Computed example of a mutant assay.
Amino acid sequence: MSNSSKAVVSFIVGAAVGVAVGYFLNSDKKDELVEKLKGQSEKLKEKWRKRKDQFHDELENELA
């Protein structure tokens, strides 16, 4: 695929993503989507905190 073909495909994909984001931000489901994303981000934060703490404890045990 040539560089110009890649650029056209990239533009089309970017435009499609932009349209989808714009649609959701202007729809009635925006609040529902935002709440779901907040919930998921909190779950991910907690998961990473637990893994960080576990890693920290394991590291302390190895160094002790």
Rank of each mutant, 00 (worst) to 15 (best):
E32C: 03
E60W: 04
L25E: 00
A20P: 02
A7G: 00
K50F: 06
H56G: 02
S10N: 06
L44C: 02
W48E: 09
E62C: 05
K45Q: 12
D28S: 13
W48N: 12
S10T: 03
V34L: 12
L63V: 09
R49A: 15
N61T: 09
K47I: 02
F24S: 12
N3G: 06
E32G: 06
Q54P: 02
K30P: 08
Q54M: 13
D28C: 04
W48R: 15
I12A: 13
G18V: 04
G18F: 04
N61M: 15
K6D: 02
H56V: 07
D28W: 08
N26T: 13
Y23M: 13
S4M: 05
L25K: 11
V17P: 01
R51W: 07
Q40D: 12
A15D: 11
D31L: 11
D28L: 08
D53H: 08
F24T: 13
V34Q: 00
A64W: 12
S2P: 04
G22L: 06
K45C: 07
W48K: 14
K29L: 12
E58K: 11
S10P: 00
V8M: 03
E58P: 01
S2I: 04
N26D: 11
K52Y: 01
K29I: 09
K36M: 06
K29Y: 11
V17S: 01
L37M: 09
V17E: 02
L33Y: 05
S2G: 11
N3R: 00
S27Q: 00
G14K: 09
G18N: 03
E46V: 06
Q54R: 13
V19C: 14
E58N: 08
L59E: 00
N3M: 01
V8K: 08
H56A: 04
N26P: 05
S41A: 08
S27N: 10
E60I: 10
I12W: 01
K43L: 09
V17G: 00
S4F: 02
R51H: 05
G14V: 05
Y23V: 14
S5Q: 07
S41W: 15
S10Y: 07
K52A: 11
G18P: 07
A15I: 07
G14Q: 04
G39H: 05
L33K: 07
